[in-house]
């Protein structure tokens, strides 16, 4: 009786505190969601919890998608339309997808090499790659910018693909190395005996077997690049033709930060893609994070 009771109490305590934590954790997002549907004046005057259901509107989302309304007496109706998000959305995709795929491919080759190929200096090279993890990317910004200026690469998408590839490679190589080196030796050896080359083994065996690790790193890299502002600002700048979503979001608040009701709606639009990717690949995610953690 008392034991059951104890268990019940501890269950309530554990689940209750978990529930509370979840609530606290999601509260800001909830506030953003509610604010994104509230009219401008309401957002500016009262907190989101003082919600007036009859006032909810889709106008913020409308302005986010079709361009902000700007008072301009010289235009018909006295209102001009600002930039919409579509160009920035495309730019973000163009930046993010190659910046995710290129480092994963290179890192997978490298990880295989470090794990299963014997060559002199293997350890030294691997230590160098791992050591790169400790170098903050910020210190590389200006030197790389200088090189890009010489190569006339500034402001091009190629520049940012290469930058993100470089910044993403150490972690990618390290994570994939842990996973790939833990694959059963027997499989690889039998493939060797059957006469398979390194390339065949890599494409036929390693890539197929490493899907969980590849997918989980893909999520990490995709989110990092999608949400990145700094690297994009430095290497491709903020001209409307090349500006990415994060940049557009920053502009959306207006030059004095007066339009943050639009920021809320814009933030939800921006979040939709990483959320989609995450839910699509999430079953690999936990498996991948654990990759290599119980390496024997």
């Amino acid at each position: 009786m008392s034991k059951k009771r104890q268990k019940l109490i501890s269950d309530i305590l554990v689940n209750g505190s978990l529930l509370l934590l979840c609530l606290i954790w999601t509260l800001p997002s909830l506030g953003m969601l509610v604010s994104s549907f509230r009219p401008r004046d309401d957002v500016l005057t009262t907190g989101w919890w003082k919600i007036d259901w009859s006032q909810l509107t889709l106008k913020n989302y409308d302005q986010v998608f079709s361009g902000k309304e700007i008072a301009d007496a010289s235009m018909p109706g006295g209102v001009a339309k600002g930039e919409d998000m579509s160009q920035a959305f495309l730019n973000s995709l163009v930046v993010t997808v190659p910046s995710t795929i290129i480092p994963i491919l290179i890192a997978a080759f490298a990880a295989y090499g470090f794990a299963w190929m014997k060559f002199p200096g293997r350890k030294v090279f691997f230590i160098m790659v791992v050591a790169m993890l400790a170098v903050p990317l910020q210190i590389a910004l200006i030197p790389i910018l200088r090189d890009y200026t010489k190569l006339d690469l500034n402001g091009t998408f190629l520049a940012i693909w290469l930058a993100h590839t470089g910044f993403g490679l150490p972690l990618a190589t390290y994570l994939l190395y842990n996973y790939i080196s833990a694959l059963p030796r027997d499989i690889l050896e039998s493939a060797f005996i059957d006469g398979a080359s390194h390339f065949t083994i890599f494409t036929r065996l390693i890539l197929q077997l490493s899907i969980p690790a590849l997918a989980s790193f893909a999520i990490l890299q995709f989110m990092w690049v999608w949400n990145d502002l700094l690297v994009a600002l430095v290497f491709i700048g903020s001209r409307p033709e090349v500006a990415v979503l994060t940049q557009r979001l920053m502009d959306m608040t207006g030059s004095r930060g007066q339009d943050w009701h639009l920021l809320m709606a814009g933030a939800f639009v921006t979040m939709s893609v990483p959320l989609f990717i995450f839910f699509m690949l999430q079953r690999y995610f936990v498996r991948g994070i654990l990759a290599g953690s119980v390496k024997g």
Partner: peptide, 10 residues
């Protein structure tokens, strides 16, 4: 990228 390219290069 191909669509957006003309504006991308200086």
């Amino acid at each position: 990228a191909a669509c957006a390219a003309p504006t991308a290069a200086p």
